[in-house]
């Protein structure tokens, strides 16, 4: 594949993506929260952990545009710093899942045979266990630190990716360019990582985009159960959980984090679907 070809393919992809209005909207939401999490201090000058018991549960005002929480902390600041934590959980968890899924899928698809059979049966078995049950069970025996949460969501979420990559690998390894590379004396590792891997990335990217959304939701569910990111570290999940107990009295404590999660997850999903459609104009469903 010539570099120029890849280049124009990429622009084709962007053009197609830009035509999909929902994907663009999703992308905008994703971008907004990404910026929020990158430079939270721009959005709020308050310290997200500054407690002021004289300012508990104040409605939105000029000083606190999104109001204050049950300890008088600025909700906007907590939302902004919470964005960082929530997105971090999403990205790291999905990063872990994607790496495992890629390795297993590439290996399984490329070598086939017994290793493939064993790995794929293992995937089948893992898929039988409800993922959320697995996550809870693991966290029960470890501590719910942010790192454990990211790792656990990651190691219980790689199976889908591995199946996807395996299927791609199976078809890719029969293609001419692989045969050509082999003829030039390329080793297995080179073929796998230089020739096959790049061609599996599109579907993996789609899966990863959807995965980030899933991980953010999972964190909020864990927070609801009291085993998510632990306060005082803000995450959207634990801000929303604290907000639910004030749902009627202090609406701003639940509405903002609720909407943030909703919009972000929605945004990642629309973007992911858009990428899928743009990558594969045949609109293959999966």
């Amino acid at each position: 594949m010539a570099a120029g070809g890849a280049h124009s393919m990429f622009f084709d992809f962007l053009r197609r993506l830009a035509r999909n209005r929902l994907a663009v909207a999703g992308g905008a939401v994703v971008l907004f929260f990404f910026i929020l999490s990158a430079v939270p201090q721009v959005f709020s000058g308050h310290d997200p952990n500054r407690i002021d018991v004289l300012k508990v549960l104040q409605a939105p005002s000029a000083g606190h545009p999104l109001g204050t929480d049950e300890l008088g902390r600025d909700v906007l600041a907590r939302m902004a710093y919470g964005a960082r934590i929530s997105l971090k959980v999403g990205f790291v968890a999905v990063g872990i899942a994607t790496c495992i899924g890629l390795l297993v899928g590439l290996f399984s698809g490329f070598y086939g045979g017994l290793a493939d059979a064993v790995l794929m049966r293992f995937v089948d078995i893992m898929l039988c266990f409800p993922t959320f049950f697995l996550i809870l069970a693991v966290i029960a025996f470890l501590e719910p630190s942010i790192y454990i949460i990211m790792i656990v969501i990651g190691v219980t979420g790689w199976m889908g990716v591995s199946r996807l990559v395996r299927a791609e690998t199976l078809s890719l390894k029969e293609r001419d360019f692989v045969a050509a590379a082999r003829a030039q004396g390329a080793g297995d590792a080179r073929i796998i990582f230089r020739h096959i891997l790049p061609n599996t990335l599109a579907p993996v990217l789609v899966a990863a985009t959807l995965g980030v959304a899933g991980a953010i939701l999972t964190e909020s569910a864990l927070s609801f159960l009291g085993i998510g990111v632990q306060p005082p570290t803000p995450s959207w999940g634990n801000i929303l959980t604290a907000g639910k107990d004030n749902i009627e009295f202090a609406w701003w404590l639940s509405v903002y984090p609720g909407l943030a999660i909703l919009l972000t997850v929605l945004g990642y999903n629309l973007l992911g679907e858009g990428i899928r459609d743009a990558v594969d104009p045949r609109l293959r469903g999966r």
Binding site: F224, I261, L263
Partner: peptide, 11 residues
């Protein structure tokens, strides 16, 4: 349909 998926259930 994506909103249904994206909204935190307990909220």
């Amino acid at each position: 349909v994506f909103t249904g998926f994206a909204v935190p259930t307990f909220w």
